Simulated scan of single mutants.
Amino acid sequence: MKKIACFMQNINFYHSLSAAAEEEGFEIQNTDSSLEELSDYMLFVTDDSLAAEKIKFSDIPVAFASQSGKLQNVFNLKIPFDKIQFRSLLDQLMHGVSDDLYPRISWPEFIKKSYLIGNDIFKLDKIIFFITRELIFFTGISEIQKIRIGLSEMLANAVEHGNLGISAEEKFRHTEAGTYEDFLKSRVENSKGCDCRVRLEIYMDKKTVEFIIEDEGLGFDVENAELQAKDDDLLKLHGRGIMLTKIYFDSVEYNKKGNKVVIRKFLS
C-alpha cells in the first residue's frame, strides 16, 4: 500500500483526508516534518506553512492545505477538504505531471469527446492518461487504473493488429525470439506516411463509462480469437486483450467485421 505522510493541525481536514486516502487505497500516517522520516512516502500533506517550506525543495512532493493562502513550488489543497481535488492530486503524482486538472469551482455532470489517435503505440500510455483524466470526477483512483488497463489493451489491439496489420502469429513469433519491440518500431516507422487512425469516442458520467474504438484495419474473427485465448498461449492471439478487458469492463461488444468495439463499465 502506498503511504502518505501527514502533519496536520486541522483535525476535521485530517479525518476527511484519512478517509479519502483509505478509500483510494493509500495509507495515511502522522509524522513530523523531518526528512529522515519522510523518505518512504510518496507525498507529504500539511497545513503548517513552515513545515511545507522546509520540505518543498526535497525529493518528496508537498501538498499545503489552506483556506485561502497558497505557497509556491508545492501542490495547494483547499480547506475544507475536497475529495475530487485530492483524487486529482493523486492522479498527477502517479503519472508525473504537475498541471492541475481540477477547476475547484465546478465539475461536469457528464463528458462526451471524440479523438483520432495515431499509430505510434509507444505513446499510448501517455495518451490514455490524458484522455481519461476527467474520470476523477466520477470514480476513484483504483477504478480509474483498472479502466485504463482495459482501454490500453483495446487501443493497443486496434493499432497493432488493426492499423499496423500485425498478425497474432507475427507477434507471437517475434515475442518468442525477443525481437518484437524492434519489429513493432519498424512497423510504426513505416506507417508514418499512412493516413489511417484509430477513432475513439468517450462518454462518462457518475453511472457509466463507455469507449467506442474503431480502427481502419481488416478486422478479425472475434469468436475464434476468444476461444483460442482460452486454450492457447495468451501472448499468441488477439484474444488476450479481449479477455483482459472483460475482467475490468462489464460489457465488450464487437461489430461483425471485428474492427470496432464498444466497452462499458458501470460505476457503483
Rank of each mutant, 00 (worst) to 15 (best):
F26D: 15
F172Q: 10
Q9S: 15
Y254D: 14
E37T: 06
F122P: 03
R197D: 07
I11S: 14
Q228T: 12
A51T: 04
G162E: 05
A20C: 14
E226M: 07
C6V: 05
H238L: 09
I166E: 10
I111Y: 02
V188T: 08
D82N: 15
V188S: 13
F86K: 08
P108I: 01
T175I: 01
I127V: 13
N30C: 12
L184W: 02
K260W: 02
V222G: 03
Y248C: 12
T179P: 04
N259K: 09
L35Y: 09
V74C: 13
F110M: 13
F220P: 00
E189L: 12
S58K: 12
I127S: 04
K257A: 06
I136W: 02
G219A: 11
I60F: 01
Q85M: 13
A65S: 11
F75D: 02
E160N: 03
T175K: 11
S186Y: 00
K206M: 05
K70F: 01
M1D: 06
I141G: 03
S68E: 12
G219C: 08
E216P: 02
L77Y: 09
T208R: 13
A177Y: 00
R148A: 04
I84S: 09
F183W: 03
S88G: 13
F137N: 10
Q85Y: 15
D125W: 04
I111E: 07
E176S: 03
F81R: 02
A177E: 04
N12A: 11
A156N: 12
K257E: 08
R187H: 02
V45Y: 04
F266E: 10
L155V: 10
E153I: 06
D59S: 13
S33T: 01
K207W: 02
N157I: 05
A51F: 10
I212T: 06
I4Y: 11
D47R: 14
E27D: 09
K260G: 06
I144S: 05
M94K: 15
I263H: 01
K185Q: 01
E134D: 11
M154Y: 05
F138Q: 04
D221H: 14
